[in-house]
């Protein structure tokens, strides 16, 4: 018999306050902002005329990834003004995701609902604001709720669906997608870590070699989480770009 005892979920998700109102999630969020600012600060201090290397190379690669991989694919040339917003979003989410696999942190800050919810609400405000700014208040809601090219009678069906999908489901799914992915990854890592630990320390000596299996799974999942951390940041960013682009130019 192995003593596999799964800890209460809040023990693996909630962190004690280091000082009142300041816990590990706060540290990760602040570190994410500081690292991102530090990288770009180091990048801007280099001579911009010579070939970029080190931090500048990295920063420029990220900027070009956002420009070519996100903005140009979804908004086209008009959307290049959104690059700094999307860049901050991408960097912040990525740097909040990645501590999930960094030893001693072992916790993605986005596996708590607070940060994804805040970012999703911010994006919601931003894309609705963009739509209202570009098309006027009534114009925006007209083009969103009454999509052209639909027979008049169908508006009874289409308008509530569009309202729910554009106003409610979008920020909800944006937040839940990021949060649930990171939470699921975190719980998976905890599960396999606990399982291999329990097997390695099993009283029955036969079970000890079996512990290799969940341990390999743990290694595989850790490298998988590297991919997920990047992919979720990318998807969040590209969906933001799609929403903003759709609000600014409804004909696309």
């Amino acid at each position: 018999m192995i003593a596999l005892e799964f800890p209460p979920i809040n023990e693996i998700l909630r962190w004690k306050d280091l000082v009142p109102g300041f816990n590990k999630i706060s540290i990760i969020a602040i570190l994410a902002a500081v690292i991102a600012i530090g990288l770009f600060l180091a990048a801007t201090r280099q001579d911009h005329n010579s070939a970029p290397k080190g931090s500048r190379n990295l920063a420029e690669a990220i900027v070009e990834f956002i420009e070519n991989g996100v903005v140009m694919q979804t908004m086209g040339r008009d959307g290049l003004g959104w690059t700094p917003f999307l860049l901050s979003l991408f960097l912040f989410i990525y740097l909040c995701n990645v501590p999930g696999i960094i030893p001693f942190f072992q916790m993605p800050a986005t596996a708590r609902m607070a940060i994804p919810m805040f970012l999703a609400l911010l994006v919601w405000v931003v894309y609705n604001g963009t739509g209202i700014k570009h098309q006027g208040f009534f114009g925006y809601f007209k083009s969103t709720l009454f999509p052209p090219g639909v027979p008049k009678a169908l508006y009874i069906l289409v308008t509530p669906i569009e309202f729910i999908s554009a106003i409610i489901v979008r920020p909800f799914s944006l937040a839940v997608r990021l949060f649930a992915n990171m939470l699921a990854g975190h719980i998976l890592l905890v599960t396999f870590a606990l399982l291999s630990e329990a097997l390695f320390q099993a009283k029955d000596k036969v079970l000890i070699p079996v512990g290799i299996l969940p341990f390999f799974m743990l290694i595989f999942l850790t490298s998988f989480e590297v991919l997920v951390a990047f992919l979720q940041a990318y998807i969040f960013t590209i969906l933001t770009a799609v929403y903003i682009g759709g609000a600014a130019h409804p004909e696309h």
């Binding site: 300041f22 999630i25 706060s26 969020a29 909040c96 708590r112 919810m117």
Partner: peptide
Amino acid sequence: ETKELAWG
């Protein structure tokens, strides 16, 4: 949680 929301 409010504190995490605020810091994030």
